[in-house]
Design a protein around this nucleic acid. Structure first.
Lengths: 225, 225
DNA sequence: CCGGATCCGTAACGATACTG
DNA sequence: CAGTATCGTTACGGATCCGG
């Protein structure tokens, strides 16, 4: 695969793996559950099938990813993170946190997939607020359903097939969530307009917003001041 | 520069910068003080001058690095991290922490530079131990001198021109420090053999070892069990 | 349809040489 | 010392094709 840096340095060794094009994004895609080859192709627009195959082989050989052969009648196989691979994923979120400021409003030529909201949620969580909480939310974005569970600062997020019970079920479109995060809409407005629906406790729905969506970075008006 | 992923995702945006070959290592090189073009070439064996120039331009344009023109008679200029660049460096250390396990003993074809000990120290620090401490160490490795200051969990590390006073001055070769970290030598042995010299408080010299050098990962015997 | 392998044109990289 | 210029080699992106 890529050339080694030939340096006795932990940072260099890590970036021999994760510094190759697409590799960190492949790990991101696998962070919230196993995915098939075709799913990955779809989630990574622009990647070539040959590059993906090659990256997956490399990650398998390093035991960061393994291929699980589903029993018939599925007749398909999915790629999953090993425990070590998942621990790398957590570290990648450190960098995502740094990159949060690079994210202004979404440009027209940029792709966004609902699933990435979970990345956002895991990195943007207000840890101070989360310390005092123990709550489970269901988030419905378009056709996708996610479970987000906070337990005294610990966060668990996953994609679901069907709705489970939770302290609050929140329904919104990706556009609304992004606009909320970018401070283009206020929480009260979206609730009032019915585009951020909360079933269950309304206060829990607000806590979800405070925890995960509300921008922690300066708004454009604050920057101007 | 490198092609954009065209994804509205903080992780993708970050890796458009730091995912290019050499870029994370350039930031590593700048983490402990400004360096000249030629210094960088020397610290990054294998990089081409054209690639380095191009990476530095990119980092400058993103305001992660700036070029400081030293006043005459220095007649030279150095590259430095901006504050934002330094904050990225801190995040990179998260990944270095993950990669620590990839570091076995040093291979013969691998390069090692004394300065990287500071990377190691910043990522390997035993945080629990550090919480209770407030101490400054001088580390002399071959011709290089470093100041490492711990203050209740906060760590500050820099390269020095000359020795300052500190709680302990430790003198050792890089080979000894690496062998210590790899558990090939014990602390008591190296002190007794005089290859890990401590001026000042001996106990402080031992704390330095416990804090920064002692391997936190399983030894080969523990793995076998 | 899924999971690739193969081929091909283009862009990035590494090494060396050259310049202010 | 601080780069730029050139050139051969490698990696990537896109398309096509193939076996299960």
């Amino acid at each position: 695969m890529g050339k080694s840096y030939k340096q006795y340095c932990a940072l260099a060794k890590t970036f021999e793996i994760v510094g190759e094009r697409w590799t960190p994004l492949i790990i991101r895609e696998l962070m919230f559950g196993g995915r098939r080859f075709a799913d990955l192709i779809e989630g990574l627009p622009g990647i070539g099938a040959s590059v993906l195959a090659s990256r997956l082989k490399d990650l398998e050989s390093r035991e960061l990813v393994y291929k699980a052969h589903l029993p018939p009648p599925a007749a398909s196989s999915i790629y999953q993170l090993t425990e070590r691979g998942a621990s790398l994923g957590e570290k990648l979120l450190c960098l995502a946190e740094w990159g949060m400021e690079l994210l202004g409003g979404k440009a027209d030529d940029e792709v966004f997939q609902n699933r990435w909201i979970l990345v956002h949620i895991k990195t943007a969580m207000d840890r101070e607020l989360a310390e005092a909480l123990s709550e489970t939310y269901i988030l419905k974005v378009d056709e996708d359903i996610y479970r987000i569970k906070v337990d005294h600062g610990e966060l668990e997020a996953a994609q679901l097939i069907e709705i489970e019970k939770a302290d609050a079920v929140i329904t919104a479109t990706a556009a609304v969530l992004l606009a909320l995060h970018d401070n283009q809409l206020s929480f009260d407005d979206v609730v009032e307009q019915g585009v951020y629906k909360v079933e269950g406790e309304l206060a829990a729905g607000r806590r979800f917003y405070e925890l995960f969506i509300k921008a922690k970075r300066p708004t454009s008006t604050e920057v101007a001041a």
